[in-house]
């Protein structure tokens, strides 16, 4: 475990590791995404109540999950950036924020497209929807904050603190459907209890969530690899690797 962390925090080792991992991650992504999308659109039967409209869950739930997961990764990176002052941790925050903002926007958009035929409205100031919208504003705030500050080191440290403060929204989003009376349904997948979805429908959903997590890894690696080559352009190890 410590060896893996060491590989991820050293720019040189990270560069070699991503070059090795990217083709494998791409293959895994294509496989899990293909099964998830074919399962969600074709193999899985229509829901008894929502008909074919329920198929939106196969893109909506993974987007919503990724919006929280990416923020959790950013919070972990922010913690390590503050405690151990790692250069890689700041880069992870900077390059995760736009991806996280994209997934949060998509979770709201696909939720809206699902809500209109099922609830009869595109939007409602429901606790889950509102807290997810706040998360989108958090992501946008972090992106803007990074580009607005002139002093790089101070900006990175302040951004890490902002990310940690904003982490309070993550449990609020998760538990909003239990703490308040909301129009949004409760959790479909549960870790320590039986899932509220039939087995025939759950596997493509898990496959899509896995595919989206791998996708985040691929895009993050691509962005970080470029950033590292720009930062470490004159280093001997990079000239040797390429």
């Amino acid at each position: 475990m410590w060896s893996l962390i060491n590989n991820l925090v050293s720019p040189r080792k990270f560069y070699s590791l991503t070059n090795m991992l990217l083709p494998w991650l791409t293959v895994l992504f294509v496989l899990s995404f293909s099964y998830g999308i074919i399962g969600g659109l074709i193999l899985v039967p229509a829901d008894y109540l929502q008909g074919d409209g329920f198929r939106i869950i196969y893109v909506h739930a993974p987007c919503a999950f990724l919006s929280l997961f990416i923020y959790a990764v950013m919070a972990a990176a922010a913690f390590t950036a503050i405690v151990w002052r790692l250069k890689m941790a700041h880069l992870v925050i900077r390059h995760s924020a736009p991806i996280g903002a994209g997934f949060t926007f998509l979770a709201l958009l696909t939720g809206s497209l699902w809500g209109k035929p099922m609830w009869g409205t595109w939007w409602i100031w429901d606790a889950r929807l509102t807290s997810e919208l706040i998360l989108l504003f958090m992501y946008l705030g972090i992106i803007l904050f990074q580009s607005a500050s002139a002093h790089k080191t101070a900006a990175e440290r302040a951004t890490a603190i902002l990310v940690l403060v904003g982490f309070i929204d993550i449990p609020i989003i998760h538990y909003s459907v239990y703490w308040w009376n909301t129009l949004h349904q409760g959790a479909t997948l549960k870790l320590f209890a039986p899932s509220a979805i039939d087995h025939s429908m759950v596997y493509p959903l898990l496959s899509m969530i896995t595919a989206f997590m791998i996708y985040y890894g691929i895009v993050l690696f691509l962005r970080l690899r470029y950033e590292l080559t720009a930062l470490e352009r004159n280093h001997h190890w990079l000239r040797k690797s390429s």
Partner: peptide, 26 residues
């Protein structure tokens, strides 16, 4: 899609467009 075509394809289309753009640009 049983009358939900606009909503289902709208969702899948927007997600696929985002995934392609986010991967293609870097």
């Amino acid at each position: 899609m049983g009358g939900y075509g606009f909503y289902v394809w709208g969702s899948y289309g927007s997600v696929l467009a985002f995934l392609l753009a986010q991967w293609f640009l870097p």
